[in-house]
Design a binder for these strands. Structure first.
Lengths: 195, 195
DNA sequence: CACAAAACAGACAGGTCTGTATATTTCAGT
DNA sequence: ACTGAAATATACAGACCTGTCTGTTTTGTG
């Protein structure tokens, strides 16, 4: 039953990748199905065979984005770690890499959440979960990097710095917020340590 | 020549207020002209007599929003100042009031910037300017409240905390980020003072 | 009252949107 | 070579979008 797979979903993958590119660059509402179909060079029916609706595709794109982005971010971080930076230093250096990457337009999960408006939309719920996972990762880095045990409050504050840096980087079209956030984060950790 | 004014622009005001409400609640792309016209109870031609296009209306709405929101925020702050809080304390208390206000859906300027995608759109440029003005106001509060002269870097960091709190309040549907941001801001100021 | 500016009502054009229907072609495994 | 699933091309329905056009009615002012 599961034999007839073959190359299968070659089209599906092209759809997801194309949609991710267009959705990120122009927004989920601004990009229509026809455009995705044309640029992915697939038939419209292939899209609707794999996804029940555009909303369903948006969700699939965000899931794909989370995997792809996590891998990319870890790769950036690893490079800085190998260059001698500690965990948190590598994190903020990677953040700056992201801000300076071509076509940077902020966080796709925030953007989708804003565009969809509806908090109950599956993509909105997934975005909220992604943020929780992202903050968990950040907290782990802070703990390992600073040695602080009860770093929860400090980690929450640093998470705000990071989210603010992302948004401000978009508004000001600058990567400077990454440095400002890093310095403030170090100050907060130094203060937490003294206690 | 300027006599024939009368009540005039009674319709214009209704259009702007209705558009602001709908744009904020559902997004500038999600709300169509027909909807605004219907809910404002004006003729479509009245809208196009006052505004050359939807983009033009969006810009006018953001200008109106800035005035209205500034007044509302100052009012919130004043109440907390009168209750004994200092400038920065009142600011963060007002921020929390905002997060808890019915229909809160984040910062309209960020949201519009995200939805429009185009950094060159007049509304995007205006939003960037609004942020600059907002941060200037925040810096003044910090300087007066802390007595720090060269508070630029600290103010930038606190601005990131505030922007992050706004976004996170939307994502988590919670007003807690206001408190986290306030505590971190106080820590950053305390550190700046020690230097 | 008379006049002119404004707001009104509503149809319309031309485009885009999501999603469906139909019929043909490719292709892997038996 | 046969079969069946997948991908294809294309037309279509019905809704919505922005913006225009044409008149009619209201309204304030001389």
């Amino acid at each position: 039953m599961s034999k007839t797979r073959a190359k299968s979903s070659d089209a599906r993958q092209r759809i997801v990748e194309t949609a991710e590119r267009l959705f990120y660059a122009e927004g989920v509402r601004a990009v229509g199905i026809d455009r995705i179909v044309a640029e992915a060079e697939v038939a419209k029916m292939s899209l609707y065979n794999h996804f029940s609706s555009k909303d369903d595709l948006i969700l699939a794109v965000l899931q794909y984005r989370e995997e792809k982005f996590s891998a990319l971010f870890e790769q950036w971080m690893r490079r800085h770690t190998e260059a001698g930076l500690d965990g948190l230093g590598a994190f903020f250096a990677a953040l700056q890499d992201w801000f300076e990457s071509p076509g940077f337009r902020g966080c796709m999960f925030i953007n989708s959440r804003v565009e969809l408006a509806d908090a109950g939309h599956p993509a909105s719920k997934f975005s909220a979960c992604h943020k929780a996972r992202f903050h968990q990762m950040l907290r782990t880095i802070i703990q390992e990097s600073s040695g602080i045990k009860a770093a929860e409050l400090t980690a929450s504050a640093i998470a705000l710095l990071v989210e603010g840096a992302i948004v401000t980087a978009v508004m000001e079209q600058s990567s400077k917020p990454a440095e400002v956030a890093r310095d403030a984060a170090l100050a907060l950790i130094a203060r937490a340590k003294r206690k």
